[in-house]
Amino acid sequence: EAHFQVQLEQLRSMGFLNREANLQALIATGGDVDAAVEKLRQS
């Protein structure tokens, strides 16, 4: 989780407030914030 701290903060600042969902999306996308946003929008 600490590995994705910067990305988690970016997602939070973009309005994605579900930390667990954000973390799962980042893990699934290897930390790619843009891909994580797409994944979160689809769910």
Rank of each mutant, 00 (worst) to 15 (best):
D34L: 05
V33F: 03
G15Y: 03
E38A: 12
A28L: 08
H3G: 10
A35M: 13
S13A: 10
Q5V: 07
E9Q: 06
G15K: 13
E38C: 07
Q10L: 04
V6A: 11
A2W: 03
A25L: 05
V37P: 02
G15C: 04
V6D: 11
F4I: 05
N18Y: 02
Q42R: 09
S43G: 15
L23P: 00
M14T: 08
Q10N: 12
R41I: 05
F4R: 02
E1D: 05
K39R: 13
K39T: 10
R19P: 04
H3P: 05
A28G: 11
R19N: 12
F16L: 15
Q42D: 13
L11Y: 00
A35G: 12
A28S: 09
E9P: 00
A28Q: 10
F4E: 04
H3V: 09
Q42S: 15
K39W: 07
Q7E: 07
V33N: 02
L40P: 00
G30K: 12
F4H: 03
S13F: 12
R41T: 12
L23M: 13
R41C: 04
L40S: 02
M14I: 07
A36S: 12
D32N: 15
A25S: 09
G31Q: 02
A2Q: 14
V6G: 11
V37T: 08
V33M: 03
D32R: 10
R19L: 08
L8K: 04
L40K: 01
E9L: 03
G15V: 01
L11N: 00
A25R: 03
L8C: 04
I27A: 09
Q10P: 00
E9F: 02
E9N: 06
A36V: 06
L8I: 15
A2D: 09
F4A: 02
A35N: 08
K39M: 10
L40D: 01
G31V: 01
A36T: 12
D34T: 11
M14R: 10
Q7Y: 04
E1S: 06
V37G: 10
S13W: 01
K39F: 05
V33Q: 05
L23A: 11
V37W: 03
M14W: 06
L11E: 00
G30Q: 11
R12F: 05
G15A: 05
R12Y: 15
F16E: 07
A21T: 14
G31P: 01
F16A: 03
R12N: 13
A36G: 03
A36Q: 00
N18E: 14
N18L: 10
L11P: 00
Q5A: 10
E1R: 03
A28D: 11
A35W: 05
V6I: 15
S43D: 14
G31C: 03
D34F: 03
D32Y: 05
L40I: 01
E38S: 10
A25C: 09
E38I: 09
V33A: 07
Q24N: 12
V37I: 09
E1H: 02
S43T: 09
A2K: 12
F16K: 03
M14L: 10
D32S: 10
L8Q: 09
L11F: 02
V37D: 04
Q7I: 02
D34V: 06
F16G: 01
M14C: 05
E20Y: 02
G31H: 02
L26S: 01
E20N: 12
L17K: 15
E38N: 15
L23R: 09
Q24V: 07
Q5N: 14
F16V: 01
Q5P: 13
D34W: 04
D32G: 05
I27N: 06
R19W: 07
V33R: 06
Q42G: 13
E38R: 08
A2T: 08
L11T: 01
V37F: 04
G31L: 01
F4K: 04
R41K: 15
E9A: 04
A25K: 04
A21G: 07
N22E: 01
G31N: 08
Q10G: 07
I27K: 08
L11I: 15
R12D: 06
T29A: 13
V6H: 14
Q7C: 03
A21R: 07
S13Q: 15
D32I: 14
F4N: 07
A25P: 00
V37K: 14
M14Y: 11
I27S: 14
I27C: 08
N22G: 08
L40F: 04
N22M: 08
Q42N: 15
G30M: 08
Q42P: 14
L8S: 09
I27R: 09
E1L: 04
N18V: 13
